[in-house]
Simulated assay, not measured.
Amino acid sequence: MRETLIHAAEGQKVWALILEQGEEAMACLKAFAARERLSAASFKAIGAFSEADLSFFDWESKRYEPIPVREQVEVASLTGDVALEPDGTPAVHVHAVLGRRDGSAAAGHLERGLVRPTLEIVLSEAPAHLRKRKDPDSGLMLIASGG
């Protein structure tokens, strides 16, 4: 992964992160968030994957259902955030829309994505902290109101 700090002022930083063929998107994002000690950030990206694993949260079962994608796809939209887990570690939450050759799409939570040929991410860190808490209705770790 190549990275460039493209803006830094008043506690806000913006990076361009360029992932290369063969890199795994979630692993790179998690490693970057941990290394930079991100506590509140958002990002968006475009590019392509050779394959990916998405998931869908089923409200009734309170479980994520897998959506395997075993083909070359365009990353039509990838968006996410970084907040802190209760233990203070950064949590990376990513949604993706992946376009197939025929124009159809697969969408969901990104669990894993193998980059081919590139993934271009713009990540903005905010000068604040976002904390997650366990939501009693869903059992999910969600960003708490008011940070």
Rank of each mutant, 00 (worst) to 15 (best):
L29D: 01
D135E: 12
K44L: 11
G22R: 02
T118Q: 11
A83M: 15
H7G: 05
V92L: 00
M141Q: 08
G88S: 05
I121F: 05
A96H: 03
K44W: 04
A91T: 08
L140S: 06
S77V: 08
V92F: 01
R35F: 05
R35N: 08
K13S: 11
S39I: 08
F57W: 07
E111F: 04
H93W: 01
E120P: 00
F56V: 10
G147Q: 05
P117M: 09
P127M: 07
G88C: 06
A8K: 07
S145Q: 13
S39H: 12
R63S: 10
S124E: 11
D102W: 04
T4V: 14
A8T: 11
E3D: 12
V14G: 00
P136N: 07
V14A: 07
L114H: 05
A107S: 15
I121K: 00
Q21F: 02
K44I: 14
S124A: 15
A40I: 08
H93R: 05
A31N: 09
A83C: 11
S77P: 00
V115G: 04
G99L: 13
D137E: 15
A96E: 05
E3T: 13
M141N: 03
F57K: 00
F56E: 12
F56Y: 15
V92P: 00
A76W: 03
